[in-house]
Design a protein around this nucleic acid. Structure first.
Length: 409
DNA sequence: TCTGGGGTCCTAGGACCC
DNA sequence: TCTGGGGTCCTAGGACCC
């Protein structure tokens, strides 16, 4: 019997921060995105003391900051006040002004991410990475993976992860990814939920459609407008009716999902499709009045993307930009080259051309640069029908190759 | 005082080729 | 000369997820 687990770390970033600052345990803490001022305030508060010596009163508080930013994660104590992921910091400050505000530290979270995944791989080899704090695991063939529907193995993973990292997680085990993902939410935090095919009507159907991974705010609103709130109501609709309202593909998927059907395999490895960098400005910028500032930021973004590509060993040939106006409307432009690149200057030049194709009278709040259509750097050069050499492995290798080819003539 | 940053996948129209 | 269908690539936008 196929048994798939979904394992989800509990309040991951916040929990990692609590390991560093145990004095904050039980207090409302929020982690806010990319704010230098918060970073700086915390560094000042710390000085050279051991982290555990900082008194609770010295930490930055939500109420002391104004400006942009959203909450990335909040501790369970903070969630009691109604603050959580994606909420604007200013709105959160109204709900819970005394909450402690910490800056995000991705490097630290990645360390713990690698650690818990290594522990899982040690126990079960078939794992799909779904980001820093989530994985799917195939229990089917793992020794003991079928015992109590997967509960025994899930408990072993929870226990080992907690012993070795101090972090808790929640696990759902079910016949497929769709149901496992829903199940992992049933007993959060530090919970386990086991779902069998026969539990569909009792455990899944009463849930709101929004609980299905893949039904977001838009689809949910559309379903509601059609009078469908629960998964049971969704399941009672005819396939053809769903196709008529949502299209062939989505309609069929909704029908399957409502009946708990999902054949997607566990994906062990995948190649990246694109690499991008973007930034929201501290204040809205104007293309003409703030030209110098904008230009410098633009170049920085291109440099970062080029650096990311080179570090990860990829080249790409579709270069694009994204910008967001002060009214939050976004536009994108991109251009595909006849060769692959990871060169900052090339990216900057093409991205610059993209920028010229977009209206720039309105103020901007965000600028981004993206490189897509990726290939592994150094993969064997292949000739495409237009005769261009692609992928070009690297600037240096390309130069060598051209030199070698010219000698032939 | 609204709304981060990094991704994936899908759709849809047009160009172009066979 | 007209009709046409399929396939792929490019581009823009949007939904969704972590």
């Amino acid at each position: 019997m196929r048994r798939i687990a979904h394992l989800d770390m509990d309040a991951f970033y916040a929990s990692v921060e609590l390991l560093r600052y145990p004095q904050l345990k039980g207090l409302p803490v929020v982690i806010g995105g990319g704010r230098r001022d918060v970073d700086e305030a915390l560094r000042l508060a710390q000085g050279d003391r051991p982290l555990a010596k900082i008194s609770v009163d010295e930490f930055p508080r939500l109420k002391d900051y104004t400006g942009r930013g959203v909450i990335t994660t909040a501790t369970y104590a903070a969630r009691q006040f109604g603050v959580g992921s994606a909420l604007g910091l200013m709105k959160a400050a109204k709900l819970c002004p005394q909450a402690i505000l910490l800056p995000v530290d991705f490097a630290e979270y990645r360390k713990y991410s690698r650690a818990f995944k290594a522990i899982i791989l040690d126990i079960a080899p078939l794992m799909e990475d779904r980001g820093v704090d989530e994985v799917y695991i195939d229990f089917t063939e793992v020794p003991g993976g079928q015992r109590e529907g997967g509960r025994v193995l899930a408990r072993l993973m929870q226990k080992t992860i907690f012993e070795q990292t101090g972090l808790t997680c929640s696990v759902g085990v079910a016949p497929n990814k769709l149901l496992a993902k829903m199940a992992s939410e049933f007993n959060k935090p530090n919970g386990i939920a086991i779902v069998f095919e026969d539990d569909l009507q009792t455990q899944i159907w009463p849930l709101a459609c929004r609980k299905i991974n893949g039904i977001g705010p838009k689809s949910d609103a559309k379903l509601k407008s059609l009078g469908i709130e629960t998964i049971a109501q969704l399941a009672s609709q005819e396939l053809q009716w769903l196709i008529d309202h949502f299209g062939q593909k989505t309609g069929a998927w909704l029908h399957d999902a409502a009946h708990g059907r999902d054949e997607r395999p566990i994906v062990l490895e995948s190649e990246p499709v694109s690499v991008s960098r973007e930034t929201s400005f501290e204040r809205d910028l104007h293309a003409v009045r703030d030209k110098a500032e904008l230009g410098a930021l633009f170049t920085q973004l291109c440099n970062k993307v080029a650096d990311d590509l080179q570090r990860k060993g990829y080249v790409g040939k579709t270069i694009g930009i994204k910008l967001r106006y002060d009214d939050f409307k976004s536009v994108t432009r991109d251009q595909t080259l006849d060769h692959y690149t990871a060169d900052a200057k090339t990216i900057r030049q093409i991205a610059g051309l993209c920028l010229k194709r977009v209206p720039l009278t309105q103020r901007l709040r965000l600028l981004g640069v993206r490189v897509g259509s990726l290939a592994k750097a150094g993969s064997p050069p292949t000739y495409e029908k237009n005769g261009a050499l692609a992928p070009v492995p690297s600037a240096q290798q390309a130069t060598n190759l051209i030199a070698k080819t010219s000698q032939l003539f």
